[in-house]
Write a protein that binds this DNA or RNA. Structure first.
Lengths: 236, 236
DNA sequence: CCTCGATGCGTACAGTGTTCGCACCGAGGA
DNA sequence: TCCTCGGTGCGAACACTGTACGCATCGAGG
């Protein structure tokens, strides 16, 4: 025992660990999501996250390998907000798939950092929640009666579209939000040719629905005649 | 006309500025793209870029506001690799659009960092080259004879799909490349149920073409009957 | 009561983007 | 010919970052 410093001071200056509240991986992930939603992905730092959890920055490394893995966990966690589509039947596939797509878009808009992150890691091996979601979608296409081997490509095409629009939409909204004005103000500043009466939120939703309908139309065309729910006006 | 025989000191003790090669914004951007292609977006640092240009790190700030703006410039620059689609006619719109989509996918695969970056800044206000590309696409849909006001939504849907697939595909390929094995090795390691005879690159291209055809099918359904080229495969 | 694995965290290190101020160049006027 | 002066390069510095390491401390189990 070297006499490096004061042996012990008073009780009051002791490190004073009031209650040893253990960190949880779950806690860390939800705090991460809060921070990501609030300030964006590049504002996420381990130290900031630590203080938000009333913990030291390096404590997090006991529960998470590194920052990248933490973000991956966050990505899969928000996929858990989606409930998988209902039972798959060949009559209801189109509405079920459309609903899943709408939910997915809403989730990406709620968490604008998810889109770019998905673009860096790919859609497939993200985690159990994402897998549950994609396999639920796949079941819909299987029940719909697509030719053998096409269900996969159909589901993939749909997912790519939804993630593509939603990501770009989320980025657009984030840029506006960072500039501090409302969407309509921003629009009338940056492209004054749009009318005042249109609701930009509605416009975005219509655009999404338009593309979604076109993809579902195109997919429905691959079904054996009779099963399809095509909205195509040309009856052939 | 000015003779370089400066009477200061000897040539050898001069501050040794061998040739005053001025940096150019263009030089910087192309070096940035090289570095991004080679090592990915998070390996891009101003100091590394500086040494690659045989310049100090902070010299770059004379020509570029900051790192983010530099990446934006790089993004728009690679959009310049795409040549805008040919003259738009109502007979050739489908092949022209399919070709533009294929080119765009190839570009995103050549530069795997573009996808996530597009997801962070949005598709629209990226720069003149991207604008040229999207407006060329729009002209195709206008010439195709879509109902008034729908050309925009059609072009947007297509772009979202292409960027969505290509981004996720590029991420997948980057993960594999970083692991140092070939795509087929990686596949037989991670999902041994796929056969040996399939060419994974061909599979990806087929998947892309499948979704593209479905979207174009769905879009063609909105044309006045007679103009549509429904279900025409784009394959090679 | 003692031991031991698990956990928290202070310190430290190698980087990062970016600012500031100074040194220098080359052209344009006196 | 000299002398200014806007533009350019860049070394030093600052505030941060992710994270490896080692030590202090805990709770449970013997």
């Amino acid at each position: 025992m070297p006499r490096d410093a004061k042996p012990i001071t008073s009780v009051w200056t002791r490190p004073h660990r009031p209650q040893r509240e253990h960190l949880t991986r779950e806690q860390i992930v939800t705090a991460t999501i809060e921070l990501l939603d609030g300030e964006g992905v590049e504002a996420l730092s381990m130290r900031k996250l630590g203080t938000r959890l009333k913990a030291g920055a390096t404590s997090l490394y006991r529960h998470v390998a590194n920052r990248d893995e933490l973000i991956q966990l966050a990505v899969d966690d928000v996929f858990g907000e989606l409930d998988p589509p209902a039972a798959a039947t060949h009559r209801t596939w189109r509405t079920a798939v459309a609903r899943a797509a709408t939910d997915l878009r809403a989730m990406v808009l709620r968490h604008p950092w998810v889109g770019p992150e998905l673009g860096q890691v790919g859609l497939l091996h993200v985690g159990p929640n994402a897998v549950r979601m994609t396999s639920g979608l796949l079941a819909q296409f299987q029940a719909a009666g697509f030719p053998a081997g096409e269900e996969d490509q159909a589901a993939g095409a749909l997912m790519s579209y939804v993630v593509g629009v939603a990501t770009s939409e989320a980025a657009y909204l984030s840029v506006i939000a960072r500039s501090g004005v409302s969407e309509r103000e921003w629009l009338s500043d940056h492209s004054p040719d749009v009318g005042e009466e249109v609701d930009p939120r509605q416009v975005r939703e219509d655009r999404f629905a338009y593309g979604l309908d076109r993809i579902l139309d195109g997919l429905a065309g691959r079904l054996t005649p009779g099963n399809d729910g095509t909205s195509r006006p040309t009856g052939r």
